[in-house]
Design a protein around this nucleic acid. Structure first.
Lengths: 144, 144
DNA sequence: CTGTTTGCAAAAACTTTGCACGTCG
DNA sequence: CGACGTGCAAAGTTTTTGCAAACAG
């Protein structure tokens, strides 16, 4: 059970108030161990209480992102996904054909990121990072 | 002026009909030399004629993607972007803070892609590929 | 001719906003 | 108590869909 506490403290340090809603949302996304859409967070919330509105979920997720406590990204399915640092850096292989997502480790690509940082003076923060292509199954089914 | 003609031929070969709308949309996106959103395609269309509907633009772009003639991806600004193979493979460095997009070459990351292909049996087709991080300007302005 | 494609308008899906009420500190 | 945060409902954006009319082959 990771450091929700740390996230809440940081929010407070930034001058934001700690509310039951914020506590619950931070706990859900920090414990989840993967990225979640706003709707998925909402479902988890509803398992516990009915007193949080979807607008609050969006506002809280935005707050976390704006304060560097979470990342926002997009897997191309039309929904924005969010995750805290608890999830850790990870890279997604997204199949263009079936949409399946495989998670791989950062070390597989770290040499390239180092190179990019050197060449382009760009601080890579690949908490979420997607490579599109074709997975084995789709390749077998659709050789083209 | 690239091979719109080739794209149209492929569509015909796949059994689809060639309409003025499809011709124009293919021409716009193939000549554009970069990714475009549906709305941007629509604007270009309107410069020439008022006889194409946004629904047709979406349907045509989908058609191109489904038949492997274009790629669909997302830079995280809420709009889906499209590009034909004419654009060529390219990688985007997207700044989390200001949203600026820098385009870099594939060679900078090709070694990693080769490694991924070997390890994960995944055919990387990084026509569009985004690495999120912080650009120099934002780093200078917001050291954190 | 005949099945495909289009335009239109309405709906869907996701996210944001305005405002009055509630609550953290 | 006062500013900040929330719920609610309505609106905003982007994309999709149903259907009758138009058209490619």
């Amino acid at each position: 059970m990771p450091h929700c506490h740390t996230y809440l403290k940081k929010l407070r340090d930034h001058g934001y108030r700690i509310t039951p809603q914020r506590e619950m949302i931070v706990q859900i996304i920090a414990h989840c161990g993967r990225h979640m859409s706003a709707e998925e967070v909402m479902e988890k919330v509803r398992e516990k209480t009915s007193s949080i509105n979807i607008a609050t979920v969006y506002r809280t997720l935005d707050l976390l992102v704006e304060n560097g406590l979470a990342s926002r990204f997009d897997l191309g399915n039309g929904k924005t996904a969010y995750a805290t640092g608890e999830h850790g850096p990870h890279i997604h292989l997204v199949c263009k054909h079936c949409g399946s997502v495989t998670e791989i480790t950062e070390s597989d690509i770290s040499a390239s990121l180092d190179k990019i940082e050197d060449l382009y003076d760009f601080d890579c923060r690949p908490y979420h990072f997607s490579v599109h292509g074709l997975c084995r199954d789709c390749r077998d089914a659709n050789p083209d």
